[in-house]
Design a protein around this nucleic acid. Structure first.
Lengths: 130, 130
DNA sequence: CTTTCTAATGTTATATTATTACATAATGTT
DNA sequence: AACATTATGTAATAATATAACATTAGAAAG
């Protein structure tokens, strides 16, 4: 159909919505918001989300079942992600720290195994809620 | 009713099941397995799971919506967890690395914020699947 | 030991999140 | 043009999780 970087119609609609959102969006909230654009079924949303995650345009916040746009130019592919999550207001921020990425990418478990793929979620209070 | 460390009947039944399982267990699989012990409803399972997570006896693997018993004596409270997950066989192992814990507990984001609570999930292939 | 408070339980119903299955259409490849 | 691959549309349903309300058991304090 097209190369990785060009999004299809549904993918673009859904990416735009998430990208404009100040907070992570949940799948059914996305669905509700794009119904006026002709996307009617959950599966259409989940398919677009899967693809967007795969190509690194968005990330899933696993502990919240929600999705945010990637604002970290270094993660073209959704492999190594870190977030801070405010336990009061639920604000989520993607962390891009070269030191952290490097530490985690080089981390070896007790079998000497390294992992290029990981997801890290920090929990605490954001500036405002502190 | 009782002090933190003693489990109630439902909590004990569910903890024992998870503790004996070689792999993470999902809530409805737990429910199915404890129905013969008189636990009939999802909510009974979720309530016990919540409590067990809260007191650090089990951890939730967020990316899998599944639960494993804690085998890390250092995490009495479920605050700072790290796991490796095999993308083929789905084996999950809790990582207890003093270095990693220390690094993450001391990590400061760009606002200088530290986080004592986090969850890290590494993805890759386990020894067997490699 | 009995009143009172809190945490846990039981039960029904329902909300939320995600996938299966199958048919069609659009684009990419040769 | 023929074929392969990826995306779409649609309906149904599976899997995960919570709300609301009534009851019971144990802890705490007098």
């Amino acid at each position: 159909m097209q190369k990785q970087t060009l999004l299809t119609k549904n993918q673009q609609i859904i990416f735009d919505l998430i990208d404009r959102s100040p907070e992570p969006m949940k799948a059914y909230s996305i669905l509700f918001n794009v119904q006026k654009k002709g996307i009617k079924a959950p599966l259409q949303v989940y398919r677009a989300l899967d693809k967007l995650v795969e190509i690194g345009k968005i990330h899933k916040i696993e502990s919240r079942n929600a999705f945010i746009a990637c604002h970290n130019s270094s993660c073209q592919v959704a492999k190594a992600t870190a977030f801070s999550i405010c336990e009061i207001c639920e604000k989520v921020t993607e962390i891009s720290s070269a030191g952290l990425s490097k530490y985690l990418a080089n981390f070896k478990d007790k079998d000497g195994m390294k992992y290029s793929k990981y997801n890290l979620e920090f929990f605490g209070l954001c500036k405002k809620c502190r």
